[in-house]
Design a protein around this nucleic acid. Structure first.
Lengths: 100, 100
DNA sequence: CGTTTAGTTCGATATGATTCGAACTAGAAC
DNA sequence: GTTCTAGTTCGAATCATATCGAACTAAACG
């Protein structure tokens, strides 16, 4: 249950919006919200690992996602509480939107 | 009261988020929300006109802002209704956030 | 220890965004 | 018509982002 990369504690709105402004990353966030914590591999959609690793890094750096190792896999969770506290309603609005 | 550039009627979430994910454009949106319709010149913050023209174009293309000519000046308005309909709560969340 | 599995990091490339000066356009005022 | 004002468009430089293969790391398992 070690934490791999500590997300930046001070959430920056522009950074959060930029992290969400990408179809791949928005899909990851949506899937995490819908299905709960998942490994990186369960969220890659067939894309190369190096590409996904980059996308997860952007999400972590923006403070949207937290990642830890469990055995050989890395688990990801949405930082709902932190996001709701910093930007109330933002995550709900993004998740509620139907289109991509 | 002619409309200069017709915003794309179908709002795309990724495009909207990307347009908002810039401090300059976020500031424009915030100022439009707070002070009401304004000319481009009243929102430039001393930046070159060509730079601002580009930023307004991004906002228009994303459907966030509508622009029309009044005499020599161009007036801008936030498309609140369209945004609230497409992504309920999003604009409120972005405007409610205190930080940049 | 050797191997497999799951991600990361590195390096390169390609694509897109931002910025700005200079030239252009349209309306207003003289 | 000339001039002024307010923005746009063009072109180029700069910077950031996305993507991917290849090499690397760390845990698990034999």
């Amino acid at each position: 249950m070690r934490r791999v990369v500590s997300p930046d504690e001070t959430l920056d709105l522009c950074r959060v919006l930029q992290a969400l402004a990408d179809p791949v990353r928005l899909g990851i966030v949506r899937q995490l919200a819908r299905d709960g914590d998942s490994s990186c591999g369960a969220l890659d959609g067939g894309r190369p690992k190096s590409t996904m690793s980059h996308q997860f890094r952007v999400l972590r750096d923006a403070g949207l996602v937290e990642t830890w190792a469990e055995g050989t896999t890395h688990m990801n969770t949405l930082r709902r509480a932190a996001l709701d506290e910093a930007f109330p309603g933002l995550l709900a609005a993004v998740l509620g939107a139907t289109g991509g």
